[in-house]
């Protein structure tokens, strides 16, 4: 036991050190009612878990210390092989804990399927989010505009995301607003989120999608209703129209910078119905997937990197105003 001590002290110190940073951690610092519900559930469960850990550690420490082999050993009972009372206790307590955790879990699961309680009378803003390796296309059907790799949303209003993918299975996640959901080709999933505070939040695909996965991210800007309306009408008036050629080019794997269009791709394809659209577009454009480690792949990668560098130096200064 003496030997266990430094280890336990160390663990305790580390826990304190890391818990002290807890309030800064994005999942425990939500900015909307969805993330708020999840945070409450997480904190509730941490309470139970801490209780379990304390019980097990206290018991372990006591037993290992008291019954270690030593001189004047007391209480040795080699045939002590069970106790109905004790065993009943530790069947029942975990059952109670499981029930105590199940009830709020199921409640929250059901509640997250719809818009948040406080704003359920408002009409949610509908945004279609489409993942393409390795970018996000956002369609605002009511406003009839489309953006790439960034989102603008009004605050205090539920947003209904309709998620799909043009190719690999992605997961749409804005940690500070709430939990994620998969975006899959040939499928449409729905996710309600809402921001209660203005600001810029990071969003990303969290499901592994291959080489460009790490940078498969986007920014979310939550703003007042007026600002949002102004931004949307400006985009409708000033931004270029999205052509089919341009959209097909977006279907190529790779990264692009943020874009805005005054029309949407909904007229010619819904990836939820047409899972192979992107693959067909690639074929039309003469794109061929390269075997990793082949010469062709290495050359392609070099070319892409140079393009990225060039783009970075060009767009320096006029990057999207947040």
């Amino acid at each position: 036991m003496r030997r266990l001590k430094p280890f336990l002290t160390f663990g305790l110190l580390m826990a304190v050190f890391m818990l002290s940073g807890c309030s800064d951690m994005v999942i425990l610092d939500p900015k909307g009612p969805v993330g708020e519900q999840q945070k409450d559930l997480i904190m509730y469960s941490i309470g139970f878990m801490t209780f379990i850990l304390i019980v097990v550690y206290a018991l372990t420490t006591f037993i290992v210390y008291k019954y270690r082999d030593r001189k004047n050993h007391k209480g040795y009972d080699p045939d002590n092989e069970g106790s109905h009372l004790l065993e009943t206790i530790w069947w029942i307590i975990p059952i109670i804990i499981t029930i105590a955790l199940s009830v709020p879990t199921v409640k929250t699961i059901y509640s997250l399927e719809g818009p948040p309680e406080g704003t359920k009378d408002q009409k949610p803003l509908v945004i279609h989010a489409t993942s393409v390796d390795w970018k996000w296309v956002f369609t605002y059907p009511e406003q009839d505009i489309e953006t790439v790799n960034y989102l603008h949303i009004p605050e205090d209003r539920p947003v209904l995301f309709k998620l799909t993918s043009a190719d690999s299975m992605a997961s749409f996640w804005i940690p500070q607003l709430g939990g994620q959901k998969y975006a899959m080709a040939g499928m449409e999933t729905e996710l309600y989120l809402q921001a209660d505070e203005q600001g810029t939040y990071e969003g990303r695909n969290s499901n592994f999608t291959g080489e460009g996965f790490t940078d498969h991210t986007f920014d979310v800007m939550a703003m007042s209703d007026d600002e949002f309306e102004k931004w949307a009408s400006d985009a409708k008036a000033d931004a270029p129209k999205l052509t089919k050629e341009q959209y097909d080019k977006l279907m190529l794997p790779g990264h692009v910078k943020e874009m805005t269009f005054s029309s949407t791709h909904m007229g010619w394809v819904d990836h939820a119905d047409e899972a192979d659209y992107a693959l067909n577009a690639r074929e039309r454009l003469g794109y061929e997937p390269k075997v990793p480690h082949s010469k062709a792949a290495k050359e392609e990668k070099k070319k892409r990197e140079e393009e990225m560098k060039q783009e970075e130096s060009e767009s320096h200064g006029d990057s999207h105003a947040h």
Binding site: V56, E87, S102
Partner: peptide, 29 residues
């Protein structure tokens, strides 16, 4: 969710049974 949490019950039972195997034992490290 519930079936998954339920797996914790028999696993928890095992943990306590191991602990109580050491209880009243003569533990050699």
């Amino acid at each position: 969710s519930i079936t998954t949490m339920a797996i914790g019950i028999p696993t928890g039972v095992k943990i306590f049974n191991w602990l109580f195997t050491m209880y009243r034992g003569k533990i050699q490290f």
